[in-house]
């Protein structure tokens, strides 16, 4: 009985590892294929998201902002996405999908704070 559960855990881990590799591959391919066929890139994103949901894994940080959360199309800044930094109410990145017009906002206050602390540290060392 105990052995069965251990085996099962092993299986799960193996499966998740494979799923992670698949997501990585699919997004890489989407990036490669994008200049030639956008629909194919979107299809890869679709499969990658399906795999990610089925295997219950996190999407790699690298690819998290590379697709539209609404229409699920692959985004390339400057081609079909607009990326701007706004700092007024609070510092955030605004990504607009030019395919469907959906707007996504991501805060970067934490990064900013980290940088501030770092520069202060360095300043301290120099002084």
């Amino acid at each position: 009985m105990g052995r069965k559960w251990i085996l099962r855990g092993k299986e799960q881990r193996e499966k998740k590892r494979i799923a992670r590799e698949r997501v990585e591959t699919l997004f890489t391919m989407a990036e490669r294929v994008f200049p030639y066929s956008r629909e194919l890139a979107n299809r890869y994103v679709e499969i990658a998201l399906a795999v990610q949901q089925k295997a219950k894994i996190r999407l790699p940080k690298k690819w998290k902002r590379r697709y539209c959360k609404k229409c699920h199309s692959f985004l390339v800044p400057g081609v079909n996405a607009r990326v701007r930094l706004r700092s007024k109410p609070y510092p955030h990145v605004v990504i607009k999908c030019l395919e469907c017009g959906h707007i996504m906002r991501y805060p970067y206050l934490r990064e900013k704070k980290a940088r501030r602390a770092k520069t202060q540290d360095q300043g301290g060392v120099e002084a």
Partner: peptide
């Protein structure tokens, strides 16, 4: 395009 794109083992 696809050469070397596959990342899985």
């Amino acid at each position: 395009i696809f050469r070397g794109a596959h990342r899985g083992r």
